[in-house]
Amino acid sequence: MKRIKLFLAAIIVAAGFVSCSDNNNDDDIIIEVNPLEGYNMLTKLTANTHSIEIYSEQDQFTIGYNELFFRIKDDAADTYISNAEVSWMPVMHMTEMQHSCPKSSVGVTDDTSVYSGYVVFQMPGNDTEYWEMTFDYSIDGTSYSLTEKIDVLAPVNDKRRVTVFTGSDDVRYVLAMMPLDPQVAVNDFSAMLFKMESMMSFPNVADYAIMIDPRMPSMGNHSSPNNVDLSYDATSQMYNGKLSLTMTGYWKINLKVMDDDDTLLKGEDVTDENEASSLFFEIEF
């Protein structure tokens, strides 16, 4: 694991601070703090005298939803570039074909040198098949492009957080669970749904509905009370609901996806005869 310890960047103390303290003033002190302190640098891509440092709360590119932050560094000047125009494109190179995955556009955070967005990888790379990330950006009217291989891995606990399915409407969808710090409580629970328009285009799907039925298969497949099915929220472009977890352990979140006409696209009810839906997420804590 390339967990990188980030320290406070240099603290530059104004001249005279040490010797003459009478009229010193906070404005004299310039403190440069790494705005991504506490995040993990997943990789550093280098080209065109620039390097792109990709950070995340996670410690690896994982299948499922990845919230990513990155900075573009001018290696010569040793400064970070603010307000660049950036777009990105993840592509998986498989033996038979190439495809992309759902992703957001790139935005700038409050710190103008930090860019962010999300990528939903549907599958991990392996020895022969791999993901490549392309960044296209322009600085002061000059366009640059940078492509490099990245390692996308299955989550450490191997629990399912993303699923690709073909709906009853013959459309392929990608359904991703938003990261969750599960608690024995009523948890805010969200997911994103994307339609696979082409190999390279995965637009967000609005106004469908996602039913959840959490179960504990190791304990007689019991459920939990007061769950709220996920419904679409246009602002966040996510499906939000509530997930009750009555104890720690392994939970299977059985899912059903309905379209805006209430037609079942995928998933089955859990009954005595049917232990689980074919569409599900997993949580273990």
């Binding site: 024995v184 504990m216 190791s218 304990m219 009555t246 104890m247 720690t248 352990g249 392994y250 273990e284 804590f285």
Partner: peptide, 16 residues
């Protein structure tokens, strides 16, 4: 408190 141990030893115990 109650801790339940699943048959699969790799699975986390269940606590409440």
């Amino acid at each position: 408190e109650m801790t339940m141990y699943p048959e699969d030893p790799d699975e986390n115990s269940m606590f409440m």
